[in-house]
Structures are given as structure tokens and as C-alpha cells.
């Protein structure tokens, strides 16, 4: 049986990759994807712990997260499309109209 630490390390690595991409990337789609990556890293820990403790609640949480992520993706992608139509760009550094 694979020890729990492996799962957690994997989840941590995935999460850090997500954060790094989130902070570094300029393309808003990539940023979106890195958010999904972070969410799934968390999902992985949930599942791992659920398996370890033989509890279902962790898995139920994962479903919740997936549902929220799906809803968020729908809204987020809609916003991205709207933004692209207005600004003709996906570069977040050029989307700073609120400043000043």
C-alpha cells in the first residue's frame, strides 16, 4: 500500500506548481488552468485522507469542490470571453483599467 506521505507530497508539488504558474503566467487562460490545478491538488489530499481514515466525507468534499470548480469555470470563461471581446487581449498586465 502506498503511504499517505506520497500522496501529500504529490499534492503539495501540484499545488506549488499551480501557485507558481498563477503568479508567473500572463495569459489569463493559463492562470485559470493553474487555479484548477491547485483545486485538484487539494482534491487529491481530500481523497488521500478519506482513504486513510476510511471516511466518505472527504470524498463528498471532493465532489463539492468539483461542482464549485465547474460553476466557477463556467462563469470565469464567460468573463474571459467578454474581456477578450472588449480588450482584444488575454494578457492580464494589460487589463489594469481600475488603476488610477
Amino acid at each position: 500500500m502506498v503511504p499517505i506521505a506520497y500522496y501529500l507530497v504529490l499534492a503539495g508539488v501540484l499545488f506549488c506548481i499551480g501557485i507558481a504558474a498563477f503568479l508567473m503566467k500572463r495569459n489569463i487562460i493559463t492562470i485559470f488552468m493553474s487555479i484548477e490545478l491547485m483545486l485538484n491538488a487539494v482534491n487529491l489530499t481530500f481523497v488521500a485522507f478519506a482513504h486513510m481514515w476510511h471516511q466518505v466525507s472527504g470524498q463528498i468534499f471532493v465532489f463539492f469542490v468539483m461542482v464549485v470548480a465547474a460553476a466557477e469555470a463556467a462563469v470565469g470563461l464567460a468573463i474571459i470571453i467578454a474581456l477578450f471581446r472588449v480588450r482584444q487581449t488575454l494578457n492580464v498586465d494589460q487589463v489594469n483599467l481600475l488603476k488610477n
Partner: peptide, 14 residues
């Protein structure tokens, strides 16, 4: 802090 740059906000958040 209020740079208007989304990535800097994200950085602060992190």
C-alpha cells in the same frame, strides 16, 4: 499595493 496588476494581487494573496 493597489497596483492594478492582477498578478501582484495574486502574489499578495499567496
Amino acid at each position: 499595493v493597489q497596483s492594478g496588476n492582477i498578478r501582484s494581487y495574486a502574489g499578495w494573496l499567496a
